[in-house]
Design a protein around this nucleic acid. Sequence first.
DNA 1: CCATGCAGTTAACAACTGTTCTCTGGAATT
DNA 2: AATTCCAGAGAACAGTTGTTAACTGCATGG
Lengths: 208, 208
Amino acid sequence: MSHTLGVRQAQKQKTRQALLDAALRLLEEQSLSSLGLREVTRAVGVAPTAFYRHFRSTADLGVALVEEALGSLHPMIRTTVSTADDSGERIVRAVELIARHVEAYPAHVRFIARERHGGVQPVREAIREQLVRFAREVKDELAKDPQAQGWSDDDLLMLAHLYVDQMLITASLFLEALDAPREERERVTQVATRQLRLISVGRRHWLD
Amino acid sequence: MSHTLGVRQAQKQKTRQALLDAALRLLEEQSLSSLGLREVTRAVGVAPTAFYRHFRSTADLGVALVEEALGSLHPMIRTTVSTADDSGERIVRAVELIARHVEAYPAHVRFIARERHGGVQPVREAIREQLVRFAREVKDELAKDPQAQGWSDDDLLMLAHLYVDQMLITASLFLEALDAPREERERVTQVATRQLRLISVGRRHWLD
DNA sequence: CCATGCAGTTAACAACTGTTCTCTGGAATT
DNA sequence: AATTCCAGAGAACAGTTGTTAACTGCATGG
């Protein structure tokens, strides 16, 4: 089934990935709309024209980066939300998971936070799509919870969006605190945890 | 007291404002880190070198734009939060106020949403400062509310940040829906209202 | 009224950008 | 073994960028 692709295509994907990696690094200090194609190829050590073999433009590369940053995140989201125990433990676990993810892929998180409202329309669109998918998935998991009895679909979806946005805000806060002293990072953890907790309280008493 | 400034300084402030206006317009389709100084002066119809009479760099101009976009917003925030009636009416009013503001100053809102996590550090910093100020002001207003009895300062501040972030998310949603049919905008209004309502419910039952 | 200050102009600079066309070497196909 | 294909190189293009220096004209303060 799985065909080990030839030397040819392997090399191609290798430089393609090198372009993505270089771009992601360069994007830590600027935004996509100012990222030059030559800048990227120079960082990789490849001719400027080679860029066109992989992407039509830097915007196109940006869309690919969205896929790389968010595409593999869906299973993680699902399992996080659906973790059974109802206590505050679940919230603590979720916040920790976000913190770990930011530590593991800071550049990806920065890219998403930056380009979500950035100056490149196709990239904004791609991010929006992924976040909508996230929200729908979260909603599906929430619907399974006994607590969701009596909730309308609309309300479940609005709660899901609230969670997704809160997740992104928290990730962004962890990102800013990455090089800060541990006490600062713990403060972020505490605030995020309590905000999620407050939302959960609101959720519990929504049907009054 | 108020000294009507001479013809000289008046002209200067006029071109300075023209530069800010032109930049804001150009920033609707790109981000600050890709905004060129020549681009701005060309749009105003002034020599590139004239730029330096007003700003050290485009980043500097960006910081000035933050001031313009958020500086005058503090009184509005305070009065909105402190509007007395406790019912859901206050939330509806707040959401409407956000919608109106987005309609009146879409470019400002877009700029803030875009550059909050954008590629220019001093601008990010300036926005962060203003948002922290907002949060502190909201907290002060919340503290006056009888509902805040028994709340710690930390919890009040975390709630205030939650409100401020939610305000920005809502503004951004209204922005995306600006050219959409009215039904779409009303959907945004409904979702935002319910999210705020859910947070309020959580707030009411926080001390259980 | 005259001298100073200063907002804005003009010209020039080296460096950089995206895109085109042509070419090449080696893997892939037959 | 001969042929096709194609990722990447190389060179050249017209335009753009930020920054410098020396200037001009006019409002301002003495």
